[in-house]
Design a protein around this nucleic acid. Sequence first.
DNA 1: CTCCAAAAGATAATAATTTCACAATATTTA
DNA 2: TAAATATTGTGAAATTATTATCTTTTGGAG
Lengths: 213, 213
Amino acid sequence: MRKTPPEIPDVILNRLPLYYKHLKKIKNKNIEYISSEELAKHTGFSSSLIRKDLNYFGTFGKKSYGYDVSCLCRQIQLIMGMHISKTLIIIGAGNMGQALAFNSGLNERGYKLKALFDVKVDLIGKSINGSPILSTEELIPFIKKEDIDIAILTVPSEVAQEITDIIIRANIKGIWDFTEIPLKVPDHVFLEEQHINEGLCKLSYKLFQNHPY
Amino acid sequence: MRKTPPEIPDVILNRLPLYYKHLKKIKNKNIEYISSEELAKHTGFSSSLIRKDLNYFGTFGKKSYGYDVSCLCRQIQLIMGMHISKTLIIIGAGNMGQALAFNSGLNERGYKLKALFDVKVDLIGKSINGSPILSTEELIPFIKKEDIDIAILTVPSEVAQEITDIIIRANIKGIWDFTEIPLKVPDHVFLEEQHINEGLCKLSYKLFQNHPY
DNA sequence: CTCCAAAAGATAATAATTTCACAATATTTA
DNA sequence: TAAATATTGTGAAATTATTATCTTTTGGAG
């Protein structure tokens, strides 16, 4: 029983993958049902919040029983569009780019990595986890020919906007940005900024907030 | 004029680094003052939200002028504890671990990377960006001897909890976790989970939310 | 020197999010 | 078959976060 949701708040979209993560884990342990209370205990969110979140999308639970783990997993996959095949490139084949090329989460979520791109000649021609490293000069034709949906941006911050402008001209649909500079993109391009050092900042704040300074 | 803040909401701690990012950028352009309105335009938050956020920590602005860029930069550094020297290790010297070893944000924020750790014998003994890769067997004595504050966890998810238990026994203070499994840590250890694939999930949700499924 | 404009800081209003509490319902047990 | 129990789904209440508005201060123009 699924609803067509109006507009889902970001806070909820942030939590869904975390629910999913635990569900998948216990599915592997052959646990068939889980209550919101139990899921709460393992994810750190309150049980009523979890029930509310899930009810945004439909009524998946079974009273006095809880949620069917496999079924809920599948529902979240559908909600998140994990079953839809999406084409992907990584721009910037440095350490971070290569690390992401090995990220098993990509395949799991329906992403097909088609290529990495870099300017360094000693990288071009190599292959990472089965995907070729190409020259950034080929970006525009490649995106058009292969109909690429999403680009992961792991280039140095200095060239981030320049590259962004290029791939937007080539009609990229979404960008997952790992650079440090806030990018400017038109409204029709979906941008997800991965502020990697935010976590670091929070950690040191919390660790030392009571220090004299 | 600084306040000692009671308990800062996470949403604010998330925004501070983004303000800081832009401030640093315009500081390099020798811009001396910025209004909340201007900062709002560049960060995407509203001006009154920015003023409110900053007022949590003190009154840094100058009426009819705006904020002194250098001064505000410095204040955020102080708030975030970026000036405090912190010792750091990376556990798991795979692609992600190595990528993070090169992350310039570490030094900038006062982190001193002391070593990486791995189980792979062909990695042990090598050096990444000036830091040695050591055997995980040395973890406990190293953490104790070098008085390590924070560990970055970039190991396979399967061994994440095991490693976590070990470093907690060695009195680690904080963990920045890149694995996929929700870790269990005691209250006195600060845990920051970097849910790397969340961004990916959100992106595909937004890209395809109107698709029939 | 006075008035005007700019912009912070403070307060009030609104909106969003989370929790609470409970009715409804399915399951199990006696 | 009836009572007891578990647990969802949900409206209302509480809390938290954001925006809008107002007040005050400061600097600059006339």
